[in-house]
Nucleic acid binder design. Structure first.
Lengths: 150, 150
DNA sequence: CTGACTGCAAAGGGTTTGCAGTGCT
DNA sequence: AGCACTGCAAACCCTTTGCAGTCAG
């Protein structure tokens, strides 16, 4: 790992310690190691992967502590999740290019079209990851239904 | 539902019938109704929602038939899924604005940055759905690792 | 000290699979 | 008639929860 990346991890760790103090959350050994694990990963690991990653350092940690810690970090705004939180799979009969509005509260998903967004300038270095099939935009927000129930 | 939308559903149904014939898949009553249900939905329903939707027309259908049919339709390219197929939740320690490359084969997810993509022109009518918190671009493709294993 | 946190084990919810009966082609 | 498809029930996997002991502040 490069020097830059190391300091990025350190700065994230400091942010975690500060946020923990602010919110009264206790800074346990487990939480520190779990956060270090995800903060130094370039992938976007699932709970199981983080579990395996911290096992050398936390031999007795359990998977449920991983989950509890990850959601806690998520609540503090220090990490986020990819895709909908823990929903069931959702299906889409619209195979034409389109984009999505997703409610972060209830998971409601709606389509919208936009010629501009259909032809996005994808940076060339994305090709380093692999082939590009297509792209779409995901807009996150709180839908009217959920806003009404606040 | 408007006339346009009705004909859109009909044309999707025709496409399904043609694809079924081509691939030797049998056109059962259940499959037709399940496809009609998802093709006429503006939401992006999950299996359970489709299940409830078709119950008046298919009183004895079971949830597992819904699943089998949906994955079959997905394999035929007639529908797609939102988010990764059936994965576990993935976490992301990068809270700064960024975008994702996702492998459709293995689910690998990598970040990339782009100033251009950070400031996308979101169509005004998206606001009709609800508030907008942010947006990001998701590029789909087959990663180098998976391409090598072909 | 004391309440928050952890580990264990068991429950929970969505999804998949094996099997025997059914119905399309 | 043959073989894919369906419904049922049980299995499966990921995730969450209840509880008693433990530890950070």
């Amino acid at each position: 790992m490069s020097k830059n990346e190391t300091s990025e991890v350190e700065s994230r760790l400091e942010r975690f310690k500060a946020a923990a103090k602010d919110s009264g959350v206790k800074l346990t050994h487990q939480r520190l190691e779990i956060f270090r694990e995800i903060a130094s990963s370039h992938e976007h690991p699932d709970a199981e992967t983080i579990f395996r990653g911290v096992q050398p350092r936390l031999p007795t940690v359990s998977l449920d502590t991983i989950y509890r810690t990850l959601w806690m970090l998520n609540n503090l705004g220090l990490i986020s999740t990819l895709g909908p939180r823990r929903d069931s799979v959702r299906f889409d009969a619209n195979v034409a290019p389109h984009h999505h509005y997703v409610c972060v509260r209830c998971g409601l998903a709606r389509d919208f079209d936009s010629a501009d967004l259909n032809a996005l300038p994808i940076p060339p270095r994305v090709k380093d990851f692999g082939s590009v099939i297509g792209s779409h935009v995901e807009v996150r927000g709180v839908c009217n239904g959920c806003a009404a129930t606040t």
